[in-house]
Design a protein around this nucleic acid. Structure first.
Lengths: 137, 137
DNA sequence: CAAACTGATACTAAAATTCTATCAGTTTAA
DNA sequence: TTAAACTGATAGAATTTTAGTATCAGTTTG
C-alpha cells in the first residue's frame, strides 16, 4: 500500500526545500542533492519532470540551476502523485494479462474507483505551503 | 498507486466465488483455479493464507479442498489488504536506506498517516457480502 | 496401491523501482 | 578561449517487489 514512491517523495521534499529557500535564485541540482541528502542524478531527473510541469524554471550553464516559479500554495500532493505515478489505478483488473472480461460490471472495481476519488480529494487538500505551515506550528 | 495486488485481488474473487458456491462442501484449489481462471499454485498459496487467517477450512486428501467458514458479511476488504500487504505504510520515510531522521516530526508523514486512516475506513466498510449484494442489483 | 488432494517452501521469471553513468550542449569567468 | 560548472536527455545497471512455477512429503478416498 505504497502511494508515495521515491520520486514523488523526493519531489515533495525538494519543493518544500525550494519554497523555504525563497529568493535564493537558481540553485544547482548537485547542491540541492547535497542539502537534501539525495542521489544527485536521480534528483536531476525529478527536476526535469518538475520543469516540464512548469513548477520549476531552469537556467543552463555555470551558475545555473533551478528555481521555484509557482506559489507553494498552488502545488498539491495530488498534482505530484499524478505527475510521477502515471497509472493511478488502485487495481488493474486483469486476469492473467488480458483485461478482466467483467471489467465494466465488476463491483470491486466500482468500489475501488469510488475510493480512488476519496484518496484524490485527500491529497488534493494538501499543498506544499500547508506542509510548510504545519512545520512552523 | 496500486493498493490491490494480485494476491489480495485474487483473494477477494475467491471469497466472493466461494460465498456464491455456499453449501457445495470442500472444493479443490485446482477446480477453483479453473473456475476463476487463475494460476492454480498461486491460488493454493493464497488459500494457505486464508486458512491461517481462519476464513477457510481445509480438508486434506482426495475429495479434499477448502470451504468458507466465515460469514461473507464479516470479511472486509481491509482485512484482506492487511493479510496480504504486510506494510500498510503509504510512504516509507527513508532517506537512502536509513530511516529519515525527521521521521517523528515529519509533517508529510503525519498527513499521510491521517489519509491512511481514511483509506482504511473506506475499505473496512466493504465486505464480501456487500460486493455480492452489489452484483445482484 | 493409485489418484486426488493439501502443506510447505524453494525457486524462477517478470516487472517496477531506484539509482548511476555518460555525452552533448550552454554559460560563466579567469 | 578554455576550463569549470552547470543542464538536457537518455541508456542502462542494480535492487527490490510481485507474480507465478515446481516439487516433495504427507493425507484421504476408492
Amino acid at each position: 500500500m505504497k502511494i508515495f514512491h521515491k520520486d514523488s517523495d523526493y519531489a515533495v521534499r525538494l519543493l518544500v526545500h525550494l519554497a523555504l529557500r525563497e529568493g535564493s535564485g537558481f540553485v544547482s541540482a548537485t547542491k540541492l542533492a547535497g542539502e537534501l541528502d539525495l542521489p544527485p542524478n536521480y534528483l536531476r531527473r525529478i527536476c526535469s519532470a518538475l520543469i516540464k510541469a512548469e513548477y520549476l524554471e531552469t537556467c543552463e550553464g555555470a551558475k545555473g540551476g533551478v528555481r521555484l516559479i509557482v506559489s507553494p500554495g498552488d502545488v498539491t500532493l495530488l498534482d505530484l502523485l499524478e505527475l510521477f505515478h502515471s497509472t493511478p489505478e488502485l487495481s488493474e483488473c486483469t486476469i492473467r494479462k488480458k483485461h478482466c472480461p467483467h471489467r465494466k460490471t465488476c463491483v470491486l472495481r466500482k468500489r475501488i474507483l469510488g475510493i480512488e476519488k476519496v484518496i484524490a480529494r485527500e491529497f488534493e487538500a494538501i499543498t506544499i505551503q500547508s506542509l510548510i505551515d504545519d512545520m512552523k506550528k
